[in-house]
Amino acid sequence: MTATRTAGQVPWARWLVRGLSIVACIVLWQLASAAHLSLGFVTFRNVPPPTEVLQSAIVLLKSPKLLAHVGSSLWRVFAGYGAAVLLGIGFGFAIGRSRAASDLLLPPLELLRPIPAVAWIPLSILIFPSSEMSMIFITFIGALFPIILNTVHGVANIDRRLVASARSLGGTPAAILREIVLPGAAPSIVTGLAIGMGTSWFCLVTAEMISGQFGIGYYTWEAYTLQNYADIIVGMLVIGLLGMGSSWLLTTLGHYLMPWRQPAAAR
């Protein structure tokens, strides 16, 4: 919002410094791994230099393996996160709007909430006969709680003056839900979606490392077990790119759905 406006005004000198900072990091990494730098408590002996990583990345880009790994990871996130979005927003609305639903749904959710999603991995392997389902479930659990809690927060904190005003103007309960509560809660829901997306990826990569066949987390772990050390870093970079891409997607979606949140829309 304001950040995008000021970003356009950042002078080129600052961009130069920012670019040099990244280049400096890569150069230091190259030097450290080329020299097999060892500080005692940390060693670069097994860390491949960036040049090697780049070569491995090009090899992976050209092989059909990349599509298979990224494709199955994306599918799992799509399924697990998608289910969490539908269920989380639905539950969030019910809990935020209805006392009965809150009494019915909130206690078990509050009990389960402190358990980190990753701790569900062993149980989910036992519950679901296919490892595919268990990984999707972990992804789902990771996203579910942030989405529910932020939706509840958004729905429960609607400005009551706006609701009173809408009633005075003839709004029925259904119309108020659609025209006031939903857009009023939207910023909070989108925050929940963004946090949920982060935890979703985190959980997926962990689950893939433990029980996967295919998937970018599995690829990274496989690289470690097969001692293709450059591929470890390629995997990490791909995971980072996927996370960045999905968070960009959400930000864009948020801007598109909530144009009133951008003062830049002013004429």
Binding site: R161, S165, L169, G170, E179, I180, P183, A186, W260
Partner: peptide, 25 residues
């Protein structure tokens, strides 16, 4: 109809949609 000291316009609706809210209902 009631008008308060602090406006209660719907921030997510453009001016025209705010005014058209009653007829829409």
């Amino acid at each position: 109809g009631i008008v308060f000291q602090q406006h209660t316009l719907f921030p997510w609706k453009r001016v025209r949609d705010n005014v058209a809210f009653g007829p829409k209902m």
